[in-house]
Design a protein around this nucleic acid. Structure first.
Lengths: 349, 349
DNA sequence: CTGAAAGCGCTTACAG
DNA sequence: CTGAAAGCGCTTACAG
């Protein structure tokens, strides 16, 4: 491989001059600079990143830390989760010309991978996509003064940087919206297992809205779903087998809402007249099926997290951690009955 | 951060001895070693990766190079593509304790990102997930003697290392299977745009099977679909509006097959009696819906590619490139009519 | 504007 | 078995 010395020799200048020219970090005479760049281009020179990193104490790469790729969480919010998130993160990474290290925990190892990477100074910062708390790790990272931001939790561990949509609030608003439309018996489909913060937050938001508005809190009206359309269908089946079925359903994610719609269609239930539906995500599906849904975009979370991380990385001195709450927007369509609705099921496909 | 000198000082030995002990790369007296490790543990020492990389000329990271995260290709084979692939790659990466750099092309830059990374010696090798040929880049990489393997193409550019399932063969067998069952008018739903090798290979396999067996080749029987269930539904709609609809359909991917099933159910067509269906992927969906499908697992491709890459990376001298073709298996279920079929639509949900 | 030199934190012959 | 020293390829004060 071609090194800076090769360039210096070929251009007849010193190594430092080449460095100054290449990085535009020192005064170099125009003609000298020109000559140097001619050689650089001719030899396809690129500075060795390890050498540069060592000298500058900087890697130019950030680590996106996720649960194991095979885990359910990885694909958590439906089809596009991770790729949406990645797109948001990638946009900023691109912009900054950084590298992205993708890492996850390895059961075989004692030391969390992120900690090792931090101690090795392999990356300049971390973006965490954590299914649950890992307080110890985050504390050590803080102690080491390694920049990081946690994505997708609303917990006010105000000691760390976080970016999230307020899932509690989103669920609260979703539910409240149905209540305002006159519903009081409302079913809830959890987007996934309760261990996930997203899920418990949404559940709690739903419950609080009910409580605050003196509505029934029936455990039979809560169904733990997953990322498959089927789970929405199953939830609807369960709800409708009750003596008093709910008149409205809060689906934890758009695919589940589709499952509910399917059930409704197959069983001659009109939406929203017989059952009103609201959902989360506002994915392409929501648009297609006329679902009222709350926009909780992982793309935004990815982008804002990355932005925040770069802010921290580039700051010299420590600052108080930031807790970014992304606005979520209730997008009203036909499935909830708030508009002078054409029947949503009629849209079929 | 704690350096090797800190350890040496604290343990009262030289820096080289610490290095020998830590890496088990030289003779160290047992007591010395013990003392050293005590200090290492106490101070949470991990060698600086840039320094180590510079000294050893090795980064311990490989790059998974993909189209831009936002691109359609990224999510190409349906829901789980990338995460499946990643799981396969991740498994091997974990095993080798390597790092994974995720990279993609940036429209704003002239130089392909992979080339820059290679020249910078930022990674030890590449895993390419390319939608199309990038011959120039691959050639320079070869010239630079940078190890890489290309995933997901069957082109016999035998000059580079590749890993793929034989999509042509898979489509051929899928189609032949239907022909053997007595069908001669067979529709084909492309899994995506024809520019993608996967798609053109599958299309050609389908066409060859028809030609070899004297079946009709009707352009109206080829529908270009995408990664959505709807495209299967639309294909079925198009096919059934023909004067002579096909009696069997080769769906380019499982979700499309589901779309076809849905159409069949809604229009009272029995599967496989009225229309037989075969598909690709053998995803969880195929199992659930009793689809006959060809197993073309991206998990396998990821795993085998990573394995091959590590083989190359660890080899000292260059060897002739390998072209790995992964076996694909035709999994017969009820949708094709080969078994004494219970009606596949009856399974509904 | 330019260059010689120290230093980033490791590894690895080479002596002892 | 142990240590002093060179070297990996950069950057960056410091002199000139």
């Amino acid at each position: 491989m071609v090194t800076i010395r090769d360039i210096a020799k070929e251009a007849g200048v010193s190594v430092s001059t080449v460095s100054f020219a290449f990085n535009d970090s020192g005064p170099v005479a125009p003609e000298t600079k020109e000559k140097i760049f001619e050689v650089i281009r001719r030899l396809n020179y690129q500075p060795n990143s390890a050498a540069r990193g060592l000298a500058m104490q900087k890697t130019n790469t950030v680590c996106l830390y996720t649960p194991h790729p095979g885990s359910a969480f990885f694909n958590f919010s439906g089809n596009s989760t991770f790729s949406d998130l990645l797109q948001g993160v990638g946009e900023i990474i691109d912009q900054k010309s950084y590298n992205l290290l993708l890492s996850w925990d390895n059961a075989r190892e004692d030391l969390p991978r992120a900690l090792r990477l931090a101690r090795q100074q392999s990356v300049d910062g971390f973006l965490f996509m954590l299914p649950s708390h890992e307080t110890d790790m985050l504390e050590e990272l803080t102690a080491l003064a390694v920049p990081f931001v946690v994505m997708g939790r609303k917990e006010d561990i105000s000691a760390v940087n976080t970016v999230d949509v307020d899932n509690f609030d989103a669920a609260y608003r979703n539910t409240k919206h149905l209540i305002d439309l006159g519903h009081s018996r409302i079913g809830f489909v959890s987007p996934g297992p309760e261990e996930y913060l997203v899920c418990s937050d949404r559940l709690e938001g739903y419950q609080s809205a009910l409580t605050d508005n003196d509505c029934v809190q029936d455990p039979a009206l809560v169904f733990i779903g997953n990322d498959r359309q089927e789970s929405g269908y199953e939830a609807a089946t369960a709800f409708c087998s009750l003596t008093t079925p709910p008149t409205a359903i809060v689906a934890g994610r758009d695919v589940q809402a589709i499952g509910v719609l399917q059930y409704a269609r197959e069983h001659g239930l009109r939406v929203p007249q017989d059952v009103a539906i609201v959902s989360f995500e506002d994915s392409a599906l929501a648009k297609e099926y006329g679902l009222t849904s709350i926009r909780t975009n992982l793309y935004d979370i990815g982008r804002e997290s990355a932005r925040l991380l770069f802010q921290i990385v580039s700051r010299k001195k420590q600052r108080a951690p930031q807790n970014v709450i992304l606005p979520s927007e209730l997008v009203i369509r036909t499935s909830c009955g708030a508009t002078d609705s054409t029947d949503a099921t009629a849209r079929s496909r």
